[in-house]
Nucleic acid binder design. Sequence first.
DNA 1: CAGCGGATATTCT
DNA 2: GAATATCCGCTGA
Length: 213
Amino acid sequence: MIASPDRTPLPREFFDRPVLEVAPDLLGRLLVRDTPDGPIALRLTEVEAYDGQNDPGSHAYRGRTARNEVMFGAPGHVYVYFTYGMWFCMNLVCGPEGRASAVLLRAGEIVEGAELARVRRLSARNDKELAKGPARLATALDVDRSLNGTDACATGDTPLRILHGTQVDPAQVRSGPRTGVSGDGAVHPWRYWVADDPTVSPYRAHVPRRRRS
DNA sequence: CAGCGGATATTCT
DNA sequence: GAATATCCGCTGA
């Protein structure tokens, strides 16, 4: 028989570990977003690790700025950034504090509140596409800059929580190079996903944009 | 599915 | 001024 997902929150200690341990361990966990119309729950199927130390792909690589401030704070908090002029992406900060590591949440399966997610993701052709990609995931869950710095481990009234869910069998975890990361940051296989899961986003190598004429 | 161009604003140099 | 942890709509296979 299949155990039902554990709805208790992940403790902060879960995130107070090296990011390369936390990232694969997040697969299968449950992210719950409380909206005015009801909860949307997502089972994580794809993540990427970013280390604040010696990782040119990380927003924290060149030190502390106004944007990446949250990455330098306590583990278990949400780091939201705005990119390409249109999109938000969300991360969970990992420890130890001051190291500025985080896990980018890249894709997942909506397991509750799909009718609420569909309204925000009108271009999705089916439910597997609702959160297939980091900006799609943030859009589906109604995540924007206003949630930057939110504590995902807090108990009680929070707009966003991370729960135990059902841990993915380590034998089912795959890894490979990170998507859209350029140069030396692309060498590490720090993208993790659930094998054969239809909600995982397709891999795209980094392509520098051509200049506009 | 792959490959492309375009849209868009913030961030850092 | 240039780059960007992206997505969408289109074409073609």
